[in-house]
Computed example of a mutant assay.
Amino acid sequence: MSTEEGWHTVDDGAKLYTKTWKASDEKARLVFVHGFSDHCNAYYNFFPTLSAKGITVYAFDQRGWGRSVIKSSQKGLTGPTTRVLADITSLIRPLTPSPVPLFLMGHSMGGAEVLTWMSQGPADVKKHIRGYLAETPFIAIHPSTRPLKMTVVLGRLAGKVLPRKQMVQVIDAKFVSRDSAVQKAFAEDRLCHDTGTLEGLAGMLDRAADLENGKVKISEGAGEGGITRLWVGHGTEDKVCSYGAAKEFFDTVTVKDKEFKTYPGWYHKLHAEPGEDSITFANDIAKWILDRSGATGEPNESKSKL
């Protein structure tokens, strides 16, 4: 396994920080989209574990987050949903066609973005995606931390007038993981700046609402060979994103190859839970991907179906 850092320039000239965990014996590739107030170097041993199993991971810091922020005014400056989805497309397109099966995964806010991209992304790129994964996707905020409806309404109205106005939305560190070391690291990580813009926050809430209310439809035809393959995982004690909302959304998805994995008692960052749990999660992800890549004895679905 080796790593490589770089920068990707999107169509409007913005530069996004990228990092790749390269597998020495490559069996599959995974593009990963991080969540709110996060960055791609904060996923602990998750990416190295996948790489060691033959899965090359391509990750990046989204616009407005992590090392893609060069100056303070760029914090949370994600742009509207069309811009967010276009950035994801821009990262994926150069990887297609891929010599090995290509997958797309997102965590939390990034999980919702992946689900939205499945529905709204360009067909000429989606046809190269073997499967999609969403870790604790943001379909709805957990009831214990859900903002008052009036606050959301006022924020959206203000966002139309002052889209770039920044607002700090702190995620309580004690909710991210049961591991106290992870909690401490998250609270002290300056790249996890908790700062959104009114436009970006409104877009995040709107994407979640569209998924929760059924406006975003996931059906067959969103992936390689005209097949949609979807994995969703969620911890039952996640107090950031609603487990129930994720499960209800998943149950509305009418595709043949789908799996919902429940992690009883786990928190928000499944990849950073304590002890053997983080390894269990990484192994679950690797198995699902490799099972669909012909690398664990399962049939390797032919690209001739395209």
Rank of each mutant, 00 (worst) to 15 (best):
residue 155 G to L: 13
residue 18 T to F: 04
residue 12 D to F: 07
residue 35 G to K: 03
residue 213 N to I: 03
residue 74 Q to L: 11
residue 224 E to H: 07
residue 69 V to Q: 04
residue 246 A to R: 02
residue 81 T to E: 08
residue 225 G to E: 07
residue 266 W to M: 14
residue 227 I to H: 12
residue 260 F to A: 06
residue 39 H to W: 13
residue 267 Y to N: 09
residue 289 I to Q: 02
residue 70 I to F: 12
residue 139 I to C: 08
residue 65 W to E: 14
residue 298 E to F: 00
residue 89 T to C: 00
residue 224 E to P: 10
residue 51 S to Y: 11
residue 111 G to I: 05
residue 301 E to Q: 05
residue 171 I to M: 08
residue 155 G to K: 13
residue 201 L to Y: 14
residue 146 R to I: 05
residue 66 G to S: 06
residue 51 S to H: 11
residue 134 A to E: 03
residue 239 K to T: 10
residue 137 P to R: 12
residue 115 L to P: 01
residue 279 I to C: 00
residue 56 T to E: 09
residue 124 D to Q: 01
residue 217 K to H: 08
residue 251 D to H: 05
residue 146 R to A: 15
residue 71 K to D: 15
residue 229 R to F: 01
residue 132 Y to H: 12
residue 200 G to A: 09
residue 243 Y to W: 14
residue 192 C to G: 07
residue 225 G to W: 05
residue 294 G to C: 04
residue 79 G to I: 07
residue 198 L to P: 03
residue 187 A to Q: 04
residue 21 W to C: 07
residue 167 M to A: 06
residue 253 V to D: 03
residue 86 A to G: 04
residue 207 R to W: 02
residue 56 T to Q: 10
residue 171 I to P: 04
residue 127 K to N: 02
residue 201 L to P: 01
residue 192 C to T: 07
residue 93 R to H: 02
residue 173 A to F: 02
residue 34 H to E: 10
residue 227 I to Y: 05
residue 156 R to P: 08
residue 183 Q to H: 10
residue 264 P to Q: 11
residue 248 E to K: 15
residue 38 D to Y: 06
residue 41 N to K: 15
residue 152 V to A: 11
residue 82 T to A: 08
residue 279 I to P: 00
residue 285 I to N: 02
residue 46 F to W: 15
residue 289 I to S: 02
residue 6 G to P: 11
residue 284 D to W: 01
residue 276 E to I: 06
residue 45 N to V: 11
residue 101 P to T: 10
residue 63 R to D: 11
residue 158 A to E: 13
residue 73 S to M: 08
residue 225 G to D: 05
residue 108 S to F: 09
residue 21 W to E: 10
residue 51 S to R: 11
residue 275 G to S: 15
residue 240 V to D: 02
residue 97 P to N: 00
residue 261 K to G: 00
residue 205 L to N: 14
residue 140 A to R: 10
residue 133 L to E: 00
residue 119 S to N: 09
